[in-house]
Every structure is written in structure tokens, then in C-alpha cells.
Design a protein around this nucleic acid. Structure first.
Lengths: 138, 138
DNA sequence: CTAGGATTTAGAGCGTGCTCGAAGTCAAGC
DNA sequence: GCTTGACTTCGAGCACGCTCTAAATCCTAG
């Protein structure tokens, strides 16, 4: 029988078997995964590829319900590319916004790190700090 | 009475009043927020500043329990800068990893967008697609 | 002084995205 | 054929981070 077991699919995609089944139930898996005569899933490369795309979208914070919507559009076949494009572009806006926010807030973290490095470097010479300086840099 | 009400604090920090109280209960607020004689919170600038820092850390995905740990270290006063530094550096590693992952996955989104833009551009000339091409670009 | 809106607490409830358990089925090795 | 372990479905359970409710209290405007 062509394809791999769910355990192997989990290994290859980095998604747990539980989550693989959950994604299917949730309507995210646009490919119809084969079944053995005994009812067991057999994942082909196409299925695995799609699931990997799902993990990428998830990793960018796309909600499950949006992924389902996207899967529905893909399942509906050609003719709704406009809608798929709109969905992806909307998501792109969110991702880039999140990226910018992350980069901005990384600065705050870096600043904190600088402060503590500075204190530690100074602390080697003198463990005491003026109270107001503590309050200011906390 | 110095300081602002919780409603005003919410407005200034962009955090709901519910969440402000939740953060305090959760042990994230290192400053001791004043109270009126009647028991109502009065936020001073220092309190607001700290809460804003909390929102930055949250925005970078720091879990509540890590923020609590950080707050504990700060509350404990000077002398644990090494530990605070380690905590922040560990978080920095996670944030930069997330940033890189996000940027990587943004490429997938951009590719999808390219595909759909291409299809739409071509679709204006011809709505039909070879089945294998559909499968390949989905 | 009073009415009504803001605030308080403790605790319950919710949305998301998994994660797991139970009970049963399938299949590969001995 | 039997055992053993992977797999099935379905529904419950969980972790997280809020978010809201209820009932009481506070405070300000009129």
C-alpha cells in the first residue's frame, strides 16, 4: 500500500498523531488522505506537503478557523483565486505587523540586558546602588 | 490623591481593567500600587511604566509564569542581576528564534500570494488550467 | 442626602489549540 | 491462531490567558 502510516507522517511533519487527526477533523486537510482496507490512514507526499503548509501557516499565527476557510476555498477548486489571494494578503499584513512589533519589543529586552550587564560589570567594583538609580532602571 | 484610576490606567496602558487586576493577582506587578482610603487603586507613572514593560514582554510571548519569576527577582531587590540577565537572555534567544521562523514562513505566504497573483493575471486570458498544474500549485 | 456610576473581591467561565482516554479494530511476528 | 502494539473514533480534559459575574462598597454630582 502506497503512503506512510500516521506515526511516520507525524515524524515527517513534526506534528503529533493526535494533532494530525485533529487537523483532519477540523477540516484543514484539503487532500483526501487514503485509507487501507482496514480503515487506517496512508499519507502520500501530497498529503504531507499540505500538512507542512498548514504548520507554516499556524506558525505565523493563522487561526484554525481561517485555515479551514482557506482549505474550503482550495477544495472548491479553481475560480476563487481572488478570495484566496485576499485571505493570504490579509494574513500577510498581520504577519508583517507582528514581525515589526516583535522587532520593536526585542529592543526593550535588549535594553534590559544592557542594563543588567552594566550593573554586573559595575557590581564587580561596587555592589551598592543608589536607590533612585535602582528605581529608574529596575 | 496622586495617581490615576484603574479605568485611566487601562486607557493609558492599553490593557483592560480586568487584565490589570489579573496581572496584579498573578504577581506580575512589582510596584505596590497605591490605594485610596476607600481601597481603590491609584496608579502612578512608575506603576504604569512597569505595566507597559509587562505588555512588551507579553507581546514577545513571554509566559505569565516567567514574568512572575522576573517580577519576583526584581522585588527581591539588587543582588540577583545575574539571574535577571539569564532570564532575559534566555527569552531573547526565543524571541530571535521566533523572529527568524516568522520571516521564514512569511516567504511561504509570499509564495502563495505570487501563485495566486499569477493565476489571476493568467486567468484574465484563460480561465482553464491543466489539472496537474492545479495539483502542483494548489 | 441621595442616586448612580466606578471600583472592589473572589471565583466562575470562555476561546483556542491541542492532548489524552476509553473502547474497540487491525495487522505483523511467532 | 494468538499476542502485541499501532491504529480507529469520539468525546472529554487541559493549559493558557484572559474575561466576566455577583454582590458589596465607594465616591461624586446634584
Amino acid at each position: 500500500m502506497a503512503g506512510v502510516s500516521i506515526a511516520e507522517a507525524a515524524r515527517r511533519t513534526g506534528v503529533s498523531v493526535h494533532t494530525l487527526r485533529y487537523y483532519e477533523r477540523a477540516g484543514l486537510v484539503v487532500t483526501k488522505v487514503d485509507r487501507t482496507s482496514g480503515g487506517r490512514r496512508r499519507y502520500r507526499q501530497l498529503d504531507l506537503d499540505w500538512i507542512v503548509v498548514c504548520t507554516r501557516l499556524r506558525a505565523t499565527g493563522m487561526p484554525i478557523r481561517t485555515m479551514r476557510r482557506y482549505a474550503e476555498l482550495v477544495s472548491a477548486g479553481p475560480g476563487n483565486e481572488q478570495e484566496r489571494l485576499a485571505l493570504m494578503e490579509a494574513h500577510r499584513v498581520e504577519v508583517t505587523a507582528k514581525l515589526a512589533e516583535l522587532q520593536e519589543n526585542l529592543k526593550v529586552i535588549d535594553h534590559k540586558i544592557d542594563v543588567y550587564r552594566g550593573r554586573l560589570a559595575a557590581g564587580e567594583a561596587d555592589q551598592l546602588w543608589a536607590p533612585d538609580r535602582q528605581a529608574a532602571t529596575r
